[in-house]
């Protein structure tokens, strides 16, 4: 396959950045998208040029480190992470545009790498449960209805990649925060902090300069883990429930 790549190049946080075009020949359709970028970087290194910086770690679709906007879609045309996207999803001769996640809360560090520390601070604000120490309780001491357990588990599959923010027309992190709120709110261990959790996490995402949710649904449509949009309604419900409890 012959591919023309348009890649965002930015030297550092303060650099203005620009799109640069590269041509790649002999790309195998069985390569993953990241392997194709590896090939590009080998070529750039041999030509004594600076390789394109991009985030990646497990390359198995479970860590959430990789993620770029490909032809206007977060993680590209397949509903999976960028590392699990393969070149067979493109055609010979295609021009592919690769851009970093775009949000004030995710400043570009270099090229396609963004700083997602804002997500960590949202988790620190409330994405935890109080953990009493002592011996492990009996496994059956705390019965959890199956639908609740399933819903908590589905929400817990969020890997924090940031595709929801990248795809949102408002650059809102609502799906990410809602996934955490739903995950912990469905389980008995999450109840003591349930009301304060949602308020603190929403306040933190506002402080990080994420946009507001207008229920458009782009986030859930691109989520590689299929976090359902209804988690956002769960967050709103919890937020309404926390009103008048004097939490702020």
């Amino acid at each position: 396959m012959n591919i023309t790549l348009r890649v965002w190049r930015q030297k550092g946080r303060d650099d203005e950045g620009r799109m640069v075009t590269y041509k790649l020949t002999d790309v195998s359709p069985d390569m993953s998208f990241l392997e194709m970028l590896d090939v590009l970087n080998e070529k750039l290194t041999l030509e004594s040029e600076e390789p394109v910086a991009f985030d990646h770690d497990c390359r198995e679709g479970i860590c959430g480190a990789c993620g770029v906007v490909i032809d206007g879609e977060a993680h590209g045309p397949e509903r999976t992470t960028t590392c699990q996207l393969h070149m067979r999803s493109f055609n010979d001769g295609d021009t592919i545009t690769v851009e970093p996640w775009r949000a004030s809360a995710f400043p570009v560090v270099k090229d396609l790498v963004v700083d997602r520390g804002a997500f960590d601070r949202i988790i620190q604000a409330g994405g935890y449960v109080s953990a009493p120490t002592g011996t492990a309780p009996d496994a059956h001491a705390n019965p959890i209805p199956k639908p609740d357990a399933d819903r908590a588990f589905d929400a817990a599959t969020c890997i924090g990649c940031g595709a929801c923010v990248a795809a949102c027309p408002n650059a809102s992190s609502m799906l990410f925060t809602a996934a955490k709120v739903t995950h912990l709110g469905m389980l008995p261990q999450g109840q003591p902090e349930r009301a304060s959790r949602v308020v603190q996490m929403v306040n933190q995402q506002d402080a990080e300069d994420f946009g507001g949710c207008t229920n458009i649904g782009e986030c859930a449509a691109v989520c590689p883990k299929g976090i359902p949009l209804d988690t956002i309604s769960q967050l709103n419900q919890d937020l309404l429930g926390s009103l008048g409890k004097g939490i702020g």
Binding site: M19, T97, E99, R102, S104, P169, D209, G211
Partner: peptide, 13 residues
């Protein structure tokens, strides 16, 4: 929304 993704950070595609 404008502050969260200013005009300077719009996607090319």
């Amino acid at each position: 929304a404008r502050r969260a993704r200013p005009a300077s950070q719009r996607y090319q595609v």
